[in-house]
Amino acid sequence: MSTILRTPPLAGGRPPRWDSRRRAPPASASLPPVEKVNLAHASTDLPAPGITRPVGTLHGQPVHMVRLTGTGPWCRHATGDALFFVTRGTLRVELRERTVDLEEGELLIVPRGVEHRPVTDSEALVLMSAPSLEGEAAGQSPAP
Rank of each mutant, 00 (worst) to 15 (best):
residue 87 T to S: 10
residue 68 L to K: 01
residue 100 V to N: 06
residue 130 A to P: 00
residue 93 V to L: 08
residue 54 P to W: 00
residue 18 W to P: 00
residue 95 L to N: 06
residue 71 T to W: 00
residue 41 H to Y: 10
residue 18 W to N: 03
residue 21 R to D: 15
residue 20 S to N: 06
residue 139 G to A: 12
residue 88 R to A: 15
residue 46 L to T: 11
residue 118 P to V: 10
residue 135 G to Q: 10
residue 88 R to P: 11
residue 42 A to S: 14
residue 117 R to K: 12
residue 27 A to G: 09
residue 47 P to K: 04
residue 75 C to I: 07
residue 101 D to Y: 08
residue 33 P to Q: 09
residue 124 A to C: 02
residue 115 E to I: 09
residue 135 G to A: 14
residue 16 P to C: 04
residue 116 H to Q: 12
residue 19 D to E: 01
residue 132 S to M: 07
residue 19 D to Q: 00
residue 139 G to R: 02
residue 134 E to K: 12
residue 110 V to F: 07
residue 121 D to Q: 15
residue 18 W to H: 07
residue 11 A to D: 13
residue 82 A to F: 03
residue 44 T to Q: 03
residue 2 S to N: 11
residue 54 P to V: 06
residue 67 R to N: 05
residue 100 V to E: 14
residue 63 V to I: 13
residue 109 I to D: 01
residue 118 P to C: 12
residue 103 E to F: 02
residue 86 V to M: 03
residue 122 S to A: 15
residue 28 S to A: 14
residue 39 L to D: 12
residue 88 R to T: 14
residue 125 L to F: 12
residue 33 P to G: 13
residue 86 V to P: 03
residue 136 E to M: 06
residue 80 G to R: 05
residue 13 G to Y: 02
residue 143 A to R: 12
residue 120 T to C: 15
residue 112 R to I: 13
residue 97 E to Q: 15
residue 57 T to Q: 12
residue 6 R to Q: 01
residue 130 A to D: 06
residue 100 V to H: 12
residue 142 P to K: 04
residue 99 T to D: 10
residue 133 L to G: 15
residue 135 G to I: 03
residue 128 M to L: 10
residue 138 A to Y: 10
residue 96 R to T: 08
residue 55 V to Y: 09
residue 28 S to M: 11
residue 11 A to E: 15
